[in-house]
């Protein structure tokens, strides 16, 4: 009974990974791409890890997969946060459809939004 559930969760994880990758290609600027890749890839890979745990149970492989999943949940947002702050300070402009940029107003010189092409 456990085994089919594990496989279903693994396949859901793979599907979310693929969606995250499509988002990486389709979204217009680095910040939106980070949104798509961080969320989908974290849950996708976490799902794969949980699926392996369900398939293998409390064996060395299963427990390692579970711990990897938990570490992933804790560290992946931190990495995304660092990338995002880095690109903000580097001066990467935001997509021209961006509506508001409080961070640029407060910390940098004005809003960091790309101008419309003339």
């Amino acid at each position: 009974m456990i085994s089919p559930i594990g496989w279903i969760i693994i396949w859901i994880g793979i599907a979310f990974d693929i969606l995250g990758t499509i988002g990486l290609v389709r979204f217009p600027d680095v910040y939106n791409r980070l949104q798509a890749s961080t969320k989908c890839v974290t849950l996708g890979t976490f799902g794969i890890m949980i699926g392996i745990f369900l398939l293998k149970g409390f064996t060395p492989m299963g427990v390692k997969a579970l711990i990897c999943g938990v570490f992933l949940l804790l560290t992946s947002p931190v990495a995304a946060h660092a990338l995002m702050k880095g690109s903000l300070h580097f001066g990467t402009k935001m997509w021209k459809g961006t509506v508001v940029d409080e961070y640029g107003k407060d910390k940098l010189k004005g809003e960091q939004i790309e101008k419309e092409d003339k």
């Binding site: 979204f27 798509a36 961070y103 640029g104």
Partner: peptide, 19 residues
């Protein structure tokens, strides 16, 4: 994730980003 999946797969790409 379902929210992001919707935005990724929607043909018009419905995003209105900002900080």
């Amino acid at each position: 994730n379902i929210d992001v999946a919707y935005r990724v797969l929607h043909p018009q790409r419905p995003i209105k980003p900002g900080i």
